[in-house]
Design a protein around this nucleic acid. Structure first.
Length: 516
RNA sequence: GGCGGCGUAGCUCAGUUGGUUAGAGCAUGCGGCUCAUAUCCGCAGUGUCGUAGGUUCGACUCCUACCGCCGCCA
């Protein structure tokens, strides 16, 4: 029986519009998910994303626009959903933390954890920052009791609250990370997590009194309180699929791949595992941590004003071009730089000249010399140069797939481009356009084109996770349906198949045009 | 203050357990082809591999110190 896996992005806190940074995370998870579906079968992969909609920041953002929190989050969640769908992000679940199924699930987990004795009540006094929605110790604060993140004064608040016994699970989480070297990847973040778990942990406050904040999930064991936003949000990874499928907990959840940004490493490497264990849930498989997407060298953030709207890039270049660029340019786990100039450079050199032009010249020759008909057997080459080319086409998908499994998206694309290079060199070396002038040599030309067309087919199939629409366009040009498109090299196109005339898949971008 | 990372060709970066004249892509110059989106192919480069020491027959790779940039924790 095939393995079933679960893939998640972070649940986006929707107090502002989505930007290229959040799109990057969704795109990385989507490329991974699409690849896994090809590998494991559509029905064995569930891919989840959604919005985190509770908490004080949301409530205040809503008020600022004269909306109720619910009306505000309806609007914002739809905005995220539309932006991601427009980029081709293919999640199976779009979870909102304000929906009924989710809230009931959170209450059930609270009940369960409380019954196990891992949630307790005590009085607490501390310096509270409304923007961070958390308490600070005195030494964490800047002079004059100012929040180190927002540089705004904190408030001294005294209240009773519910706490989760974090320290109780610290050793267990630590041990799990030690025994599973790739639990948190890349390794640099694993080391940081081990550091965080090296010292005793203060228990985690998971409630807020309704008198102060009522926009959240009510505690099942005390109606005067709601749960703190993080406790609620984590369970969004679980609530819907677990409510739908009783086998989810044991058969699917342990194979979960979380995609998160490095800013929320601590919550996902320390709090979330403890929350799971306290609720008697197993741990997930991997925490896949990515870096920042900078813009022109500067950190992209709302305060610096260089936040870029992913939709504007989608309109300018197309979703697939944006997807290709961020996956090719950024090393997963490290910070990357988003620059429009780099994007145009890569577009022209790699998409237009290498990929687009290869498709164009091969299809043009097939149309010109054989009216689009394949009159030789693809993949069954006689000469050494043919066998070498076919080997390149066989190796590329395997290599690319292995790289995506390891989150090395840029190297996966590099593997595909090695096959493209081999194809372009093969054309020059065999010169089918010269052979075609001699009618006796047309059988050889047919053989050359058959290999190239089948190679193009494999390349399109391999690129599908990265550029789903353009890949489909190439497969359409080759006249293939879904069943024939995603098979190993040599098993796709057959003698007698017909392909369509060439067209420019990626028209070159003139830099001068874009400058104005 | 503690822990960790990075510093390689003009630009962006590869260099997997130390082993022959240190690589790729982009950009630049020259040549070839004409099927193709003025595309493709070939050739040509340039480097005190952050600095100074050390270990070794041999160091971009290991060790120490320092300089610069950055991250996490406190």
């Amino acid at each position: 029986m095939a393995e079933r896996i679960h893939i998640t992005t972070a649940i986006f806190y929707c107090n502002g519009a989505p930007h290229v940074g959040s799109a990057y995370e969704a795109l990385a998870a989507d490329v991974f998910a699409r690849h896994q579906r090809r590998k494991l079968g559509r029905e064995n992969v569930s891919f989840l994303s959604g919005t985190d909609e509770h908490g004080d920041k949301i409530r205040r953002a809503a008020l600022a626009q004269g909306l109720t929190p619910q009306a505000y989050t309806d609007k914002m969640s739809a905005l995220f959903d539309e932006a991601f769908r427009g980029l081709g992000v293919s999640y199976d679940y779009w979870v909102r933390t304000t929906d009924g199924v989710h809230q009931e699930w959170v209450r059930e987990m609270l009940r369960r954890t409380h019954a196990r004795g891992d949630i307790y009540f005590r009085d607490y006094e501390g310096q509270y920052c409304v923007d961070c929605e958390r308490f600070y110790t005195d030494k964490e604060l800047l002079p004059a009791n100012v929040c180190p993140v927002h540089h705004r004064p904190v408030e001294l608040i005294s209240e009773g609250n519910y706490f989760l016994r974090l320290e109780k699970y610290r050793e267990q989480v630590l041990e799990h990370i030690r025994r599973n070297p790739d639990f948190i990847r890349p390794e640099r973040y694993r080391n940081e997590a081990l550091n965080m778990l090296a010292e005793p942990l203060a228990d985690l406050c998971i409630s807020r009194p309704k008198s102060r904040l009522d926009w959240g999930v009510e505690l099942p064991f005390d109606s005067n309180y709601i749960t703190y936003v993080w406790y609620d949000a984590f369970w969004a990874y679980v609530s819907h699929p677990a409510s739908r499928d009783p086998e989810f907990r044991d058969k699917v959840w342990p194979n979960t791949e979380h995609f998160i940004g490095k800013d929320i490493l601590k919550t996902h490497a320390v709090y979330w595992p403890a929350i799971l264990l306290a609720a008697d849930w197993p741990l997930f498989k991997h925490l896949n941590v990515h870096g920042w997407l900078n813009f022109g060298g500067a950190r992209m953030s709302k305060s610096s004003g260089n936040v870029r709207d992913p939709v504007s890039y989608e309109q300018a270049f197309g979703a697939d071009v944006l997807r290709y660029f961020v996956m090719r340019e950024v090393v997963y786990g490290l910070d990357g730089d988003f620059s429009e100039e780099r994007l145009v450079e890569r577009y022209n050199a790699e998409l237009a000249n290498d990929l687009g032009n290869l498709a164009s010249r091969v299809l043009a020759m097939a149309a010109r010399y054989f009216q689009g008909e394949i009159t030789a057997t693809p993949g069954a080459g006689g000469e050494e140069i043919d066998r070498n080319l076919c080997e390149a086409f066989r190796a590329a998908p395997a290599r690319a797939g292995a790289m995506v499994d390891e989150l090395a998206f840029n190297r996966g694309l590099d593997a595909v481009w090695q096959a493209l290079d081999a194809a372009n060199k093969y054309i020059v070396a065999t010169s089918p356009f010269t052979l075609a002038k001699d009618p006796d040599k047309l059988p050889r030309v047919a053989q050359i084109l058959a290999h190239l067309l089948e190679g193009l087919r494999v390349i399109a199939a391999t690129l599908e996770p990265f550029m789903p629409r353009q890949a489909q366009k190439i497969l359409d040009l080759l006249g293939l349906d879904e069943a024939a498109a995603y098979v190993p090299f040599g098993a796709g196109l057959k003698r007698g198949d017909r392909v369509k005339p060439a067209l420019a898949l990626f028209p070159r971008i003139d830099k001068k045009d874009r400058a104005k």
